[in-house]
């Protein structure tokens, strides 16, 4: 009895996208390490973590939107615009203190831009992809035309300090330099915990799943759709602003189009992590694993001796496999139950 239960549980676990993607990461890491042991060196691991931090924060926002049954492509615009306006204000005020202030200044702008998305989506019921395409163009256009398109390098000293800060410094194996882990990864982890709690432990979080799974049913079971949508898109705006400021802090400048063009890659990472693009399904763990996989693939080609020009081919193949395999499995399941 118990044995068969265990077997069913194991089989179910094997079917979950998170387990599969974790296995893929382990196997891939093993292969890369076999070819070049430098992959597992702390400095390389810290690099990957650093690379994954900003994408990870953005991916948490994308996760929320996808679960709610929408698609958002405006988050890079929100991230860049919020941090750029924030930095412009701080420069104008000759502020030169703590790095947290930039977060606090940028956050309201991010939330505001997210709420504009929410307004068009809930008030006019325009498809989310279309609204966010429009607002993406709108935010970038407004930012570049009204605030100028030149990177701001004179960031407050506290912000610059964040890029040099270290959570953990170790001497590299060769003994030449040191590798350090940037504390910004803590922001990602904290946000991941918070989002996970919101999604799983609150009525609001369950409403997001309900809305994405079946809007009509959610409405009839008392989910206030407009309120949930304002919450989701406002929160995405906030997360985008945090990602934007973290990005600017890590690179020590506020580039007005730093994250432009990353939207599809982030969405792809979230989908790789098992989130349904049609809504109603997705987890924080899966999302973080998806981001990690993409970052490893992007980072490790050079280590295994493949020229960097092959980077997009590799990512494309990963995406193709990552999206086709679940689709084929769903197709088989449908055939088994005899549906169409």
């Amino acid at each position: 009895m118990t044995e068969s239960f265990q077997r069913v549980g194991l089989r179910r676990a094997m079917r979950s996208q998170e387990i599969i993607i974790a296995l893929v990461i382990v196997v891939l890491s093993a292969v890369i390490t076999a070819i070049n042991p430098a992959f597992l060196s702390l400095s390389n691991v810290f690099d990957i973590v650093r690379l994954a931090t900003v994408s990870g924060i953005l991916a948490l926002g994308v996760l929320l939107v996808l679960i709610s049954g929408g698609v958002d492509v405006s988050f890079p615009a929100i991230a860049d615009t919020a941090v750029f306006i924030g930095a412009t204000i701080l420069v104008a005020a000759h502020f030169n203190g703590s790095g947290i202030v930039l977060y606090l200044v940028a956050l309201p702008f991010g939330i505001f831009m997210g709420l504009i998305n929410g307004f068009f989506i809930s008030r006019f019921r325009v498809p989310t992809l279309i609204v966010t395409l429009g607002t993406s163009s709108l935010y970038y256009g407004a930012e570049l035309y009204f605030f100028g398109g030149v990177s701001i390098f004179k960031l407050p000293s506290g912000t610059v300090d964040l890029s040099n800060a270290s959570l953990l410094t170790v001497r590299t194996a060769s003994g030449v330099g040191t590798a350090s882990l940037n504390p910004s990864v803590l922001i990602l982890l904290a946000l991941a915990v918070v989002i996970s709690l919101v999604l799983n432990k609150t009525t609001l979080g369950r409403s997001i799943y309900a809305l994405g799974d079946n809007r009509a049913v959610a409405e009839r079971s008392g989910v206030r759709v407009a309120r949930v949508q304002y919450f989701v898109y406002g929160l995405v705006g906030a997360l985008a602003a945090v990602a934007g400021v973290t990005n600017a802090s890590l690179y020590r400048n506020a580039n007005p189009i730093s994250l432009q063009g990353t939207e599809l890659a982030v969405i792809a990472a979230v989908v790789l992590g098992g989130t349904l693009i049609t809504g109603g399904k997705g987890t924080v763990t899966g999302t973080l694993l998806g981001v990690l996989l993409i970052c490893i693939v992007e980072n490790s080609l050079v280590l295994v001796g493949v020229p960097t020009t092959w980077q997009n081919v590799a990512v494309g193949v990963v995406l193709l496999i990552g999206t086709t395999v679940p689709a084929i499995r769903a197709l088989r399941r449908r055939r088994l139950v005899g549906g169409v």
């Binding site: 995406l319 999206t323 086709t324």
Partner: peptide
């Protein structure tokens, strides 16, 4: 294969872009 269009074409977009590079 019933891959959602946005994902299928996202993957091929990346792949063909990569091949072109």
């Amino acid at each position: 294969l019933r891959v959602p269009p946005i994902l299928a074409t996202l993957a091929t977009m990346t792949l063909w872009g990569g091949v072109a590079t």
